[in-house]
């Protein structure tokens, strides 16, 4: 008798925890495509204005700090590695290592934003910001460049912040054993989001910091 009821309980709990990880992943990817097209629109705007004001764009991009840009690129690439390692560690049931790697990822994300803060502050101190004193003296093309720079890196920074909020929840779930190796799709989806933010930066970095003409 007791055995029978146990079976019923197991069956019920199995029905209760029924999940479709593949569907969840497809849903996440569909969301990522809307993100891609959101940034895509701005990349098209960038391409169009670069075509119209190619000289001004080259001159303006020399004034951006290539070292901060490069450091931030390496920070973001490293954080992408540590998040995928963290997911792998959790799948291998190495919970402590997974938590360490996730915390490391979040520190990388914070460092990225701190660097962004210093970078923007330096520009703002020089009067280069929308409607700033220095902007009035710049030609139209350079004003467009800095406008796009603030909008695109700003929106990207916002995405880094959202990713950090996702990871804070994931960290709590992992600590409380609500996310384990058997139930990891939420973590995987947050990881996908983080990698997409990384890919967007992979394009923003050369387009704003590196492409100069001579």
């Amino acid at each position: 008798m007791s055995n029978e009821s146990e079976i019923i309980v197991t069956q019920n709990s199995e029905m209760h925890i029924h999940r479709d990880d593949e569907a969840s992943k497809i849903g996440m990817w569909l969301f990522l495509f809307t993100e891609l097209l959101l940034f895509g629109g701005m990349f098209i705007l960038y391409a169009a204005y670069r075509f119209m004001f190619s000289d001004a764009f080259s001159i303006a991009s020399i004034r951006l700090d290539r070292i901060i840009g490069s450091v931030n690129t390496i920070i973001l690439l490293t954080s992408s590695l540590t998040v995928v390692l963290s997911i792998t560690a959790l799948k291998r049931n190495q919970k402590k290592f997974a938590i360490f790697l996730l915390l490391f990822t979040m520190i990388c994300g914070l460092l990225f934003l701190v660097n962004k803060y210093f970078e923007w502050s330096a520009k703002i101190q020089h009067g280069i910001y929308p409607k700033g004193p220095e902007m009035a003296n710049l030609p139209d093309g350079e004003v467009m460049f800095y406008g796009l720079y603030y909008v695109m890196t700003g929106l990207h920074g916002l995405h880094v912040l959202v990713g950090l909020i996702f990871f804070t929840f994931i960290l709590i779930f992992v600590l409380k054993n609500k996310i384990t190796s058997e139930n990891i799709q939420k973590f995987e989806n947050s990881g996908l989001y983080w990698h997409l933010v990384d890919i967007i930066w992979i394009f923003l970095f050369p387009l704003f910091y590196l492409i100069h003409a001579y």
């Binding site: 590695l81 995928v84 990698h195 997409l196 890919i199």
Partner: peptide
């Protein structure tokens, strides 16, 4: 991007 999408994602 192909490397990030292919392996990390």
């Amino acid at each position: 991007s192909v490397m990030v999408a292919g392996y990390f994602m």
